[in-house]
């Protein structure tokens, strides 16, 4: 088992070792590329003096509500558009495409005009970015449900709500979940950029500040923490998905080309 673990993560360990070695041997300038152990030591140090913790908390407090808001709005909207209101979807296709292309950073200045500076614009940016992958994947997931399943559901006398709950939702959930997972990636992605542009706390702010003050140890520490955070969030979402969603149904419910 340990052997399998090492085999699986050998490349990561090798990469970190290479980084460490090249930097220690001064093949690459340790001033610009501090060795990995030094970065880890910096992370531990920052955690201990209580600098890093509040920044992580600040970032998560923006990313998670934005992401949840987008999920709570996007999944029902997409499912309803894909199942009950198919005609409406035809009418809405172009406006939705345009909305999804509306870059959250275009909206940044405008959102600030409406909401002032503070937490609200950042949460809105995250929510806006996350919303569209979720809406589109829920829409197409609901639209691609095997029609014979829907027909047999109707034959058994399910109501519209029952069809949505018993058939469309379980069948669409893997696709919906793929959209949600993509969105979670986007949420951190956009949040860090938003924080780098205008914030006074958070990991993105830390990247920006350490870059300006040339504290490269801390810059690498912040980048490593962001990458690690992304990994943890992605892994935990996958665990949640495996526990709660009907991912096992995927193989025989959504057979492509059926």
């Amino acid at each position: 088992m340990i052997f399998a673990f090492i085999r699986k993560y050998a490349a990561i360990i090798g990469f970190l070792g290479l980084w460490e070695g090249l930097s220690r041997l001064r093949v690459i300038d340790p001033l610009f590329f501090p060795p990995f152990t030094q970065v880890v030591a910096e992370i531990v140090h920052l955690l201990r003096i209580g600098v890093l913790g509040p920044q992580i908390k600040a970032s998560l407090q923006r990313a998670i509500p934005g992401f949840l808001l987008a999920t709570l709005m996007g999944v029902p909207l997409g499912l309803l558009l894909g199942s009950w209101f198919k005609t409406l979807t035809n009418y809405l296709e172009l406006p939705l495409e345009i909305f999804s292309q509306l870059n959250p950073f275009l909206l940044f200045h405008i959102i600030i005009l409406f909401m002032g500076i503070g937490e609200a614009p950042k949460v809105t940016i995250v929510a806006w970015t996350c919303l569209w992958p979720i809406v589109f994947s829920s829409m197409s997931g609901a639209a691609q449900v095997n029609p014979s399943l829907l027909k047999s559901g109707r034959a058994f006398g399910l109501s519209r709500l029952g069809l949505l709950r018993k058939i469309t939702w379980p069948a669409a959930s893997p696709v919906v979940f793929a959209g949600i997972r993509l969105s979670l990636g986007y949420s951190l992605f956009m949040l860090i950029a938003a924080e780098m542009m205008g914030a006074s706390s958070g990991l993105g702010f830390m990247v920006q500040r350490t870059q300006e003050t040339f504290q490269l140890d801390r810059l690498y520490a912040a980048v490593t923490v962001i990458a690690f955070l992304g990994l943890i969030l992605d892994a935990s979402l996958q665990l949640l998905g495996r526990a709660f969603l009907y991912t096992k149904l995927e193989n025989y419910v959504n057979t492509p080309g059926d």
Binding site: R7, K8, Y9, A10, A11, I12, G14, F15, F32, F33, G185, L188, F189, I192, A193, M196, L203, G204, V207, Q211, L216, L219, Y220, A222, V223, I226, A227, G230, L231, D234
Partner: peptide
């Protein structure tokens, strides 16, 4: 297959915070 996990990590790294590192490079 051995490199798979490394690429997954790289793919998840936020491109925007790589910007300062790319400036250094």
């Amino acid at each position: 297959q051995n490199f798979e996990s490394l690429w997954r990590v790289f793919g998840l790294i936020n491109p925007y915070c790589l910007f300062p590192i790319f400036v250094i490079m």
